[in-house]
Each structure stands twice: as structure tokens, then as C-alpha cells.
């Protein structure tokens, strides 16, 4: 394999983390154009999904104090429909909706009504908030995959925050893209990936960040959850949901998805049991 290939590497920031894109085997121009399109997509989705940007749609939704319908564009409408479906398929363990603290109705389940015809969403309580943090990177990766296809990029690797990965084609030196993962404190595992997506959730230096519904303290576990899937959004959803699921819940939930591989810590979960 030549080392003077058209190796492209660029990085940018978005969704509070770093996006890194490696491509090779296509013209320099096409690779640059593709990266620019991915950056534009990142900006677009952040403008939709950010809870912190006052100009973002989700910021606006969270700010609403009246239970009035909010008009949605197609992308956000479809995203809401999708995450509601994922909540059902994960038995409620993955849920972008929550109630702000001090609410007496925090355990209410159906927190919003989405009307796909009128393209609206309405809160059932003014305390309803939404956080796409557990799935936003997957949504962006899905769009990036479309852009790689459109630009005929056959070999690429995208890391979004080091925990959401897409890889396709082969490594410039041939063979799969090899990665080391820390799956438990002090324990690494190596994966070799072709044409797939990966999402990792879990501990990082002992600090938890995934909250079980209704709880204020982040879920703690000594083991990460790694999901390998053709669908980067589902990889994100499941790495979060399975992190807080019991062993039985994991198996029940996985029946609703087509997943390539699940690692609990360094142990591979046997699928379709």
C-alpha cells in the first residue's frame, strides 16, 4: 500500500465534542467537499437539537411554558417520531423526554403529543424538557454516511467524540480499521472493523453521565456498553439503554433490533438467544 495516498484528515467541533474525519482513495477535492458538507450538516443539526443555543429549535421547545403546539420542520418531526419509537422499543429505557426537577408529575410517561399530519408537537406539561444528547451524534453520523455515499468516498473513518464511530472500506495499509477501546477501568479490547458503526457508553475515569428515568444520580457501572450496528442511530440508542438495563431487559430489548455485536465491558453478549 502506498503511503502517498490522498489521505484526508480534518477535525471540527460540534455538539460539545470533536468530530474527526479520515478519508482516502478519492480525489482531494471530493474529500474536502464531503468534509465541508459534513460540517454544514453538523451545524444544521446542532441548530435543531441544541439545548444550549438560544436560536435552536429544542432550546425553544424547552423554553415553552404553555402547552401550545410547536410547528416542526420535517427533519425535527421525523426525529421526534423516531425517538418516541425508540422509547417504546427500549421499554422506556431510552427516552429523550423528561420532566424538570421539582415537578410532582415527573413519572408521567406520555409527555408529548406529536401530530405527523399537522407537523406539531405539544407538551403535556410545561415541565416537559427534551434532550437529544443521547442520540444526536448518531443522527449526525447517519447524515454523514449519506454524504460519504453521495461523494463516492469508499474508505473513511469518522470519530465523533471518540465514542461514536463510523468506518467504511479498508485502512490505507490494508485490512480492517483497528481500534483499541477501554471497556472497563484498566481493561482494553481491540476491534477490527469493516463497514460498520460503533457506539460506546459507560464509565470514563469513574464519572457516570447516564441517568435512569426519575433519578438524579447517574447510573454507575464498572463496564461500558459497546454496540456495533449498521444503523448509527440505533447504536447510540442501545448503548445508552443497555447501559442501565438489567440482563433480562437487555435480551428483551435486543429482540427489537438488528444488531451486529454487543459488548458488555469486554464480554460479547450472545445475540438472538
Amino acid at each position: 500500500m502506498q503511503t502517498d495516498i490522498d489521505l484526508f484528515y480534518e477535525t471540527t467541533m460540534g455538539m460539545n465534542t470533536r468530530l474527526e474525519v479520515v478519508m482516502w482513495g478519492q480525489s482531494e477535492l471530493k474529500q474536502q467537499v464531503c468534509f465541508n458538507q459534513i460540517c454544514a450538516a453538523l451545524e444544521y443539526w446542532e441548530r435543531l437539537l441544541s439545548r444550549f443555543d438560544p436560536t435552536a429549535e429544542i432550546y425553544h421547545f424547552n423554553s415553552l411554558v404553555e402547552n401550545e403546539p410547536m410547528q416542526l420542520g420535517d427533519d425535527l418531526l421525523n426525529s421526534f417520531i423516531q425517538v418516541i419509537e425508540y422509547r417504546q422499543k427500549t421499554k422506556g429505557l431510552f427516552d429523550v423526554f423528561y420532566l424538570s426537577k421539582n415537578s410532582e408529575t415527573r413519572h408521567e410517561k406520555d409527555l408529548v403529543d406529536v401530530d405527523p399530519v399537522l407537523k406539531t408537537i405539544v407538551k403535556k406539561s410545561p415541565d416537559v424538557q427534551v434532550d437529544f444528547g443521547g442520540v444526536g451524534k448518531g443522527i449526525l453520523l447517519a447524515r454523514a454516511i449519506e454524504l460519504l455515499d453521495q461523494n463516492e468516498i469508499k474508505n473513511a473513518f469518522i470519530s465523533f467524540g471518540g465514542s461514536s464511530i463510523h468506518c467504511r472500506g479498508i485502512h490505507p495499509k490494508g485490512g480492517a480499521w483497528p481500534f483499541d477501546f477501554q471497556v472497563e477501568q484498566g481493561i482494553d479490547t481491540t476491534l477490527e472493523l469493516y463497514n460498520t458503526n460503533l457506539s460506546v457508553s459507560g464509565l470514563y475515569h469513574g464519572k457516570g453521565h447516564i441517568f435512569e428515568s426519575g433519578e438524579d444520580i447517574p447510573k454507575q457501572s464498572g463496564k461500558s456498553v459497546t454496540i456495533q450496528s449498521q444503523n448509527p442511530i440505533e447504536a447510540e440508542v442501545l448503548s445508552t439503554a443497555l447501559f442501565i438495563a438489567s440482563e433480562q431487559q437487555r435480551h428483551d430489548i435486543l429482540k427489537n433490533f438488528e444488531i451486529e455485536k454487543v459488548l458488555i465491558g469486554s464480554e460479547q453478549l450472545v445475540l438472538n438467544e
Binding site: 503511503t3 489521505l7 460539545n16 465534542t17 444528547g133 451524534k137 473513518f157 470519530s159 467524540g161 471518540g162 465514542s163 461514536s164 464511530i165 485502512h171 490505507p172 495499509k173 490494508g174 485490512g175 480499521w177 483497528p178 481500534f179 483499541d180 477501546f181 477501554q182 471497556v183 482494553d188 481491540t190 460506546v200 457508553s201 459507560g202 464509565l203 470514563y204 475515569h205 464519572k207 453521565h209 461500558s224 459497546t226
Partner: peptide, 18 residues
Amino acid sequence: IKKGEKKPAAIGGASWRP
């Protein structure tokens, strides 16, 4: 890669940290 080597990238970690 530029040095002609193939080594695993040490990635993997939570999406958020303090």
C-alpha cells in the same frame, strides 16, 4: 498512516465528561 504504519487508534470513552 503517514509513516506507513498500521496501529490501532485508542478510542472509546463516554460521550460526556466533566
